[in-house]
Design a protein around this nucleic acid. Sequence first.
DNA 1: CGGTATCCGCACGGATACTG
DNA 2: CAGTATCCGTGCGGATACCG
Lengths: 125, 125
Amino acid sequence: MKVSTSTNQSFDPLAGGIFPAACPSRTVLDHVSSKWGVLILVALAQGPQRWSELRRRAQGISEKMLAQTLKTLEGDGFILRDAQPVIPPRVDYSLTSRGSELVALLVPLLEWINVHAEDIVNGQA
Amino acid sequence: MKVSTSTNQSFDPLAGGIFPAACPSRTVLDHVSSKWGVLILVALAQGPQRWSELRRRAQGISEKMLAQTLKTLEGDGFILRDAQPVIPPRVDYSLTSRGSELVALLVPLLEWINVHAEDIVNGQA
DNA sequence: CGGTATCCGCACGGATACTG
DNA sequence: CAGTATCCGTGCGGATACCG
């Protein structure tokens, strides 16, 4: 069987990629699909937001995890940190263009989950 | 506010959903975005596969995690387990229609990650 | 082949206190 | 307001052994 890059119904878009244990794709996937990563990313889909807004949105997140998640996502170039040197401090987080690309793919997924979640956890078909 | 399916830059497709701490959406999201959940799901996008095939594909997964992930995904109705009472045993896993819907949203995400992963981990724009 | 059972380390992540 | 530092528990997940 040959690997096709065309639109095949038995698609293999992951050739050379996702499945090896220590590949870059896995690293990024782990960042994105981390417990809070997705939530922060889609939260930022609604536009730039401050630390405290993100904390309120992603209900249940701790300060530590918020800081850690934001740093990881910033390190990956998905979000931008804009710290204004004022008192009291004001820091805005926003999506980079790369982040926006990613979020554009994330949002349909979250929408789908949001629609079907209840049926799924209730064990309904 | 109404939910728009068009390309809106300030979309809010998550109303009433994802952000509360103990909502069904979070549960499902955690299952799907678990370390191995995504991998198993997209692996099954290539068609029904046996236990050992999945184990080989999702490189690095342990037997325990494979079993656990498969059960969770089966419980959510994403995959189907077909155990044939033969010796030696043969068990095939496949996507349900619900699973296929989900995977259809997952694949573009994984493709994107696969394409951009190297730049991201190398810190390139 | 396709699992289950058990043990166990470690890092993921929460709570609290403190700082610029 | 926006974090950092520290402590610490839990459970995620790997390794191994065993079973139908």
